[in-house]
Computed example of a mutant assay.
Amino acid sequence: MAEREAADRHDDGSFDPLPSSEEGREAARAKPDTPQTRSPTYRLAYDDPDFLTSDATRGVRLQLELMKPELALTEAGILSTIVLFGGARIPEPGKAAWAARNPGQKARLEANAVYYDEARRFARLASQHSANTSGGKEYVIVTGGGPGVMEAGNRGAGDVGAVSVALNITLPHEQMPNPYVTPELTFNFHYFAIRKMHFLLRAKAMAIFPGGFGTMDELFEGLTLIQTGRMARMPVILFGTEFWRRVLDLDFLAGEGTIAPDDLDLITFVDRAEDGWAAIRGFYGF
C-alpha cells in the first residue's frame, strides 16, 4: 500500500489518485492486436505522432515548444541570461576555409575571425561573474547553439566551468548543437517565433556580434520590443563598430524621421569584450 501511495505522488509531493499518462499509454499498447486496436483512431491522442504532427494540432505544438524549455530552465534554476547573437559562419581563427563560399569570402571571414575570440572572452567574463555572484543562476550565456559566434559563446562559458544554454533549431541543412553547450540545457525548436521568445524571456542584455540575416532579425526583434515599450530596457551591445556602422545607417533613419533621435541611444557600439561587459556592469550598477 505504501508503494502504491508513493507511485501516486507527483514530483512536487502532491497526491494524485488517477493513473498517470505513462500507465495509460502502457495499458493501451498492451491491448490484443485486432483490426480495431490497429486503427489510427484508437491511439491515445497524446501517443499518436501522426495526430500530433498534423496541421490541425499546430497550436498545440506551439504551446509545447513554449512549455518544455520553460519548465526545464525553471527546474535548473536559471534566473536571468545574456543573449549572445552572431554569425554561424564566423570561424575560429585559422579555420575560415569551412565557412567560405568563394576565395574572397575566405579572406574576409579570416579577418572577422577576431569576433570569435571576442565572443569567447565576453562569455568568459559574464560566466565568471555569474559563478562568483549567483552560483551560475544569473547572467547565464544563451546562444543559438550552432557553430561560429554561437560556439564561441558556449565555449567561453565552458572555459570557466559555467553552464550555458543553447536554443537550436531544425533547419533543412543539418545544424547540430556545438559540443560546448551544457547538455541538460540544450533545446531544439521547430518554430522560429517560439525560439525567439525564449531568447528574450530571461534576458538582461543582448550581445550582438557580426552576422547575417538571422543575426539582424534577432537584433531588430529585440530593438522593436524595447522601442515600443513591450520589453524592459536593457543593454543592446553591438560588437564591431566598423562592421555595424557600415551595415546599419541608423543616423539616416533618424534624419528621415522614421525613428526618433533618442532611439539611437538604445544601442552601444564596442570592439572589445571588456568594453561590452563594462557596459552591462554600468547599466546594472555592479
Results as ranks from 00 to 15, higher is better:
residue 248 L to K: 00
residue 263 D to Q: 13
residue 140 V to F: 06
residue 84 L to P: 03
residue 4 R to F: 10
residue 223 L to I: 07
residue 66 L to F: 11
residue 226 I to Y: 09
residue 86 G to E: 08
residue 16 D to H: 13
residue 145 G to Q: 06
residue 154 N to I: 07
residue 54 S to W: 10
residue 33 D to G: 00
residue 19 P to E: 14
residue 217 D to C: 00
residue 270 V to G: 02
residue 35 P to K: 04
residue 84 L to A: 07
residue 222 G to P: 02
residue 2 A to I: 07
residue 45 A to P: 03
residue 157 A to N: 10
residue 242 E to Q: 04
residue 135 G to V: 09
residue 247 V to D: 03
residue 195 R to P: 04
residue 61 R to P: 07
residue 122 F to T: 00
residue 279 A to L: 05
residue 23 E to I: 09
residue 203 A to L: 04
residue 54 S to A: 15
residue 185 L to K: 03
residue 211 G to C: 03
residue 59 G to W: 14
residue 116 Y to I: 06
residue 171 L to S: 00
residue 126 A to R: 03
residue 200 L to G: 08
residue 81 T to C: 13
residue 66 L to H: 11
residue 148 G to E: 09
residue 216 M to L: 09
residue 38 R to T: 14
residue 70 E to V: 13
residue 73 L to W: 02
residue 127 S to G: 02
residue 92 E to K: 14
residue 265 D to F: 05
residue 159 D to M: 09
residue 71 L to S: 12
residue 36 Q to H: 03
residue 46 Y to A: 14
residue 138 E to N: 09
residue 88 A to N: 15
residue 266 L to T: 00
residue 130 S to T: 08
residue 146 G to L: 10
residue 175 Q to A: 09
residue 137 K to W: 00
residue 266 L to H: 01
residue 276 G to Q: 01
residue 251 D to N: 10
residue 248 L to N: 01
residue 68 K to I: 10
residue 15 F to P: 09
residue 272 R to Y: 09
residue 286 F to E: 05
residue 228 T to M: 09
residue 278 A to P: 03
residue 189 F to P: 05
residue 60 V to G: 08
residue 207 A to W: 02
residue 270 V to M: 05
residue 226 I to V: 15
residue 201 L to F: 11
residue 274 E to C: 01
residue 234 M to R: 06
residue 80 S to K: 13
residue 191 Y to R: 09
residue 204 K to M: 04
residue 154 N to G: 12
residue 90 I to V: 08
residue 169 I to L: 14
residue 239 F to R: 04
residue 103 P to Y: 13
residue 59 G to N: 15
residue 132 N to V: 00
residue 256 E to S: 00
residue 80 S to V: 11
residue 48 D to N: 14
residue 284 Y to G: 07
residue 205 A to K: 03
residue 250 L to F: 04
residue 102 N to T: 00
residue 69 P to Y: 02
residue 122 F to E: 00
residue 20 S to E: 06
residue 139 Y to S: 01
residue 64 L to W: 12
residue 185 L to C: 12
residue 148 G to P: 13
